[in-house]
Design a protein around this nucleic acid. Structure first.
Length: 738
DNA sequence: AGCACGCCGACT
DNA sequence: GTCGGCGTGCTC
């Protein structure tokens, strides 16, 4: 008898062989099955069909039942899941859960049914007139079909009590009543005005040709599309997808965040308006019903275009022809909770496994993608011109050390920025002000001279912890009292805990009493749809000044915005993140692209205390290549490999001594296990305890292969068998520069 | 001897 | 994960 190797559902991966009895049906890899386990039954997924291990040959229990007649997981997706499970040190079961949403796994979730009325026989004029006298509602129902020129309609459309009316008509043979599955569509009620393909400029044309060539090529490379903001990347996506769909294949379009899906869906559904149901959405905010329907629409091939955030990389598309990752540099592609995976990297891998083309698009590609392009692993296409022919906006950097000289109190909006805002408002144009809020990593910076309080030992910016009213170093654990006045310029304003969006909003209202001002930040975003409503109002020019945090910087098009002001560009630079400079550069460059459209030229004003910072200077010149070259060169100077994978092992405990002891012990053992080129840091207190009353220590391991690193760490943790209240988290930053 | 508890390994 | 075997240690 042939055996099936089955992954039994549950937290720890349990892989067992079962026999396949003839009545089980066509058991294939990727099928969901019911199996006996000890004295109960369990569900599981068929991994492979194989010869059973000799020791078990005659003792195999049989598969009880095949849950789904067809495998729900394709061989490629199975491969992807096991690769990811290995690479990210995650249980395979957990990865498979990503492939099969809970609603799909459950046997009982069904389609939603509704009653439909079908016209069977068109009544003659005199029949209708007779009905109008005897049974007016029956006549109305029939009349509906002739006036609406439709053959069917949902029963609900005829209002209350329509069922009896319909039954009478059915008895007379005019109509028939049928139960029919309804598709629960996440974009129900939205209108999609059809759009035509736009004429591409020569650069866009070249990009499209490169993608087309890659789709046809035997050996494929990912295409990196580096296009300045406003260069018309989306139009290239649309036309590439159109070609793919015409050739009978399907396409996956990934966007960084759920909040960015509606506008992308809008553009795709409008372009494919003749068949709106061909575009499906998949993300975590769908209702169970919507997710069930979209998932099955995708798997059955009814929907051949899928749009969604990182989790959409697991969409059950068949016959995949193209994967697009928009804004590929965006950090949101990395899932920060278990299973920790990188959506962009898995997208590239999936494309490789499916042997389809993959397109990574960004105005400011990540350093790893630029590196991959430089070494020839990716093919690079650039869009350097804006599609509207407009020049890139002028970016001015204001040195707040000199701009704010004669001010008392913190200088939030410089005189020059104030004048610029006034001028734009006078012309009836709109303004975006960006305030990089002091998030949970709060550095203390003097609002008057820009001095940043740093650690005596490590020279990293110190972080303010409100609960203890102490400054803390996240590298060495050094603690200090917050200073009463600035150590540099003696200003007492250093005590002011920075300025948040709310304070700035008040200030703006006083400074520009006539302007309509709205604030968007995390507080506002908590209310459902609030952000979307505000952005729509802003687009309709019911708001003059939009003040917000990074969240308003992402992927939004406002044609009437001609001025973008960055109130404090330094905040992003002083967080203890090795990629802070890169993030700041990307943010500023993207924000800059928002200014000016069509015949309105744009202007960007960046307020900073560190005008010479490379992130700002390269952003000023719109020089992504220069910035990347500089960053890569810096790594060479410090003799760091351009590509370093890092794995972070975090040990947590309620007791500090316990956590520290366990960390030291693990560190000592790890040293002996590491393959030669890999290095590790000494254990150190971890930044920002996420849960109160927990102590966290980290060991950061760098090496050429994340896979080997994470495997070594996992083995170590398993062998150590952490007891008590100790927990270990392994985070593999898949492809990171350090 | 009888019972409660908790650790640990097997589960096909 | 979940179940049950088994050893420990306490009580009757």
């Amino acid at each position: 008898m042939q055996a099936a190797r089955i992954l039994v559902d549950g937290q720890s991966d349990l892989v067992l062989d079962y026999g396949i009895p003839p009545e089980a049906g066509d058991v294939k890899p990727g099928c969901r099955v019911q199996v006996p386990l000890r004295n109960r039954t369990a569900t599981g997924t068929v991994l492979t069909l194989s010869e059973p291990a000799p020791a078990w040959k005659d003792r195999l229990k049989p598969i009880l039942k095949l849950i789904d007649p067809e495998p729900l997981i394709s061989p490629v997706m199975m491969n992807l899941a096991s690769w990811a499970a290995d690479y990210y040190s995650v249980a395979l079961d957990q990865m498979i859960r990503c492939l099969l949403p809970e609603t799909v796994r459950q046997e009982n979730t069904a389609e939603k049914m509704r009653k439909m009325v079908y016209l069977e026989k068109t009544p003659a004029r005199e029949e209708l007139d007779a009905l109008y006298r005897k049974a007016p509602r029956q006549a109305q129902m029939l009349d509906y079909f002739s006036s609406a020129k439709q053959q069917s309609a949902p029963l609900a459309a005829f209002g209350a009590g329509a069922l009896n009316v319909a039954r009478s008509l059915e008895a007379k043979g005019f109509i028939s009543l049928k139960e029919e599955a309804v598709h629960r569509d996440p974009s129900t009620g939205e209108q999609f005005v059809p759009t035509q393909p736009m004429k591409l400029n020569s650069q866009q044309q070249k990009a499209l040709e490169e993608i087309t060539a890659m789709c046809a090529a035997e050996r494929k490379k990912p295409v990196l599309l580096q296009g300045v903001t406003g260069s018309g990347k989306t139009e290239v996506y649309l036309q590439a997808v159109s070609q793919i769909v015409k050739s009978g294949k399907s396409a996956l379009i990934m966007v960084p965040e759920i909040s960015l899906t509606p506008q992308t869906v809008q553009r795709f559904k409008s372009r494919f308006a003749e068949l709106p149901s061909s575009v499906a959405v998949l993300h975590s905010l769908l209702s169970d019903g919507e997710r069930f329907d979209e998932w099955h629409a995708i798997r059955s091939g009814k929907a051949r275009i899928v749009i969604g955030p990182r989790s959409a990389v697991f969409a059950p598309l068949q016959n995949l022809g193209l994967v697009i990752v928009d804004e590929e540099h965006d950090a949101s592609y990395k899932q920060e909770s278990s299973p920790r995976y990188h959506g962009r990297d898995l997208a590239v891998l999936r494309a490789h496994l499916e042997n389809c083309a993959v397109l990574l698009g960004s105005a400011t590609p990540s350093l790893e993608s630029i590196h991959n392009a430089l070494i020839g692993k990716y093919s690079l296409v650039k869009l350097t011109e804006r599609a509207d022919g407009q020049q890139l906006p002028l970016i001015r950097i204001l040195d707040m050390k000199t701009e704010g000289r004669n001010k008392s109190g913190p200088n939030v909006i410089s005189e020059r920025l104030r004048m610029s805002i006034d001028r734009r408002l006078d012309k009836g144009e709109q303004v975006i002000l960006l305030l990089n809020r002091r998030g949970f990593a709060r550095s203390i910076q003097c609002p008057d001279c820009g001095h940043v309080v740093t650690c005596l030992h490590c020279s990293l910016p110190l972080t303010y912890h409100r609960t203890e009213d102490r400054l803390m170093c996240h590298l060495c654990g050094f603690k200090a009292l917050p200073p009463r006045s600035c150590p540099e310029c003696r200003s007492a304003n250093i005590l002011l805990q920075g300025y948040g969006t709310q304070k700035v909003e008040e200030l703006l209202r006083r400074t520009f009493p006539a302007a309509r001002i709205t604030r968007v930040d995390a507080d506002v975003a908590r209310r459902k749809n609030a952000v979307r409503t505000i952005l729509n109002q802003f687009r309709a020019h019911k708001i003059d000044i939009l003040l917000g945090t990074q969240m308003i910087a992402k992927g939004l098009d406002f044609p009437n915005v001609t001025l973008v002001g960055v109130l404090n560009a330094d905040l992003g630079l002083h967080i203890p993140d090795p990629r802070a400079g890169e993030r700041t550069f990307q943010l500023l460059t993207q924000v800059a692209g928002r200014a000016g459209r069509g015949d309105l030229s744009g202007e960007v004003i960046i307020q900073t205390f560190t005008p010479q910072s490379p992130s700002l200077q390269y952003a000023r010149h719109h020089d992504t290549d220069g910035f990347a070259a500089q960053e890569l060169e810096m790594r060479r100077t410090f003799d760091l490999p351009p590509f370093t994978h890092i794995a972070v092992l975090t040990i947590r405990s309620q007791h500090e001594s316990m956590a520290e002891f366990a960390t030291q012990t693990l560190a000592a053992r790890l040293r002996g296990m590491l393959p030669p080129p890999a290095t590790m840091t000494d254990p150190m207190p971890a930044p920002i305890p996420r849960a109160h009353g927990q102590f966290r220590f980290q060991i950061t391991v760098k090496g050429p292969s994340a896979r080997i690193l994470s495997r070594t760490l996992r083995k170590l943790v398993q062998e150590a068998g952490l007891g008590e209240d100790l927990t270990a988290v392994i985070d593999v930053d898949a492809m990171s520069f350090m």
